[in-house]
Design a protein around this nucleic acid. Sequence first.
DNA 1: CGTTTTTGACCAGCGC
DNA 2: GCGCTGGTCAAAAACG
Length: 357
Amino acid sequence: MEKKKENLISMANLRFSDENPSAAAAAAVAATSFGGSIFDMATGAGACDGDTKWGSSLGFMDLLGIHQDFIAPSLFDSFQPPPILPPPPPSTSSEPLLHQQLDTKQLQALPSPASIVPESSEVLNNPATPNSSSFSSSSNEAANDHEPTKAEDDEEEEQDQDKTKKQLKPKKKNQKRQREPRFAFMTKSEVDHLDDGYRWRKYGQKAVKNSPFPRSYYRCTSAGCGVKKRVERSSDDPSIVVTTYEGQHKHPYPITPRGSIGINMDPSSSFGPSFVVPQPQYLRQQQQLQPYIYNSSPSLNITSITSSGSSFNASIPDFLQDRRFNTPTSSSVSLLRDHGLLQDIVPTQMRKEAKEQ
DNA sequence: CGTTTTTGACCAGCGC
DNA sequence: GCGCTGGTCAAAAACG
């Protein structure tokens, strides 16, 4: 049960807007560090050409703050499948796979095959957060919307006590369930449930279609915090763990997180750990990683931030933010092809298109 | 004994 | 309307 050590995280950050796709703020990245932790991030110019890379002997979060001059020169030149990753480091390893952002607005100006904006997305995010500056707080509001307070739950339960069925919690009808912003992390790890310092309770597990690996559902155990995360392994590459966070923590970072080795609390920030972790030699050597990109559909609008640090930061969940890690200047573009969890993120229509090809 | 995980059942949304 | 699937619930079991 205790969380395992040494996971190297990279991530894909997905941000969607259902009601106002064109105004969707650019997404960003975030990462967590896990016992013995190592942070790093791989990205690449054009996500494919491999000329530009993040990485180095810096932790991931350090990268966010330091590599501000990173530019992805040919971000949308191609959505070709990426080169294959080099072999992972010995046993303990995980390695960065991708860093992903979505921004339909920015993308429309780009000569990309991804310039067709789908009418709707399966991924419903907080519609109140097209502006980056309000992302964090409004997300919390959204969380309140669909995560009833405990008191509210109690009331509802009283009303439904006569129900004989298991599903005691009534769900509002005629009201489409709103989803909170999601942030997908792709992690090369042997460990399914990565310890990000927060406490999670597993509340469900489901078999994933077309995948031998189940998907696990976790909820933050902090009272009133409706943050959820889902963890599943990629059927394409079992060594890859896809972790999706939904919502944002509404509480300070746990004082005594489990398996928090390698996570330093930054006294200047009450909401979020600082990650100051050394990087072993074998990871430094892996700076030359090719970006690992999934190509899911040409119609998916994806873009990256090239200079707007504000929208970057605003898209990162609070719990993954730290003021020291502001304003990275770019990220790679990636598309996901995962058939499991990511089918939620990629609209059905696009998935279908991808299938037919 | 309190907390967490497991697991089968249930519900809602979507596509056909 | 029906079936499929994702997501959630909650009782029981397991764990520390």
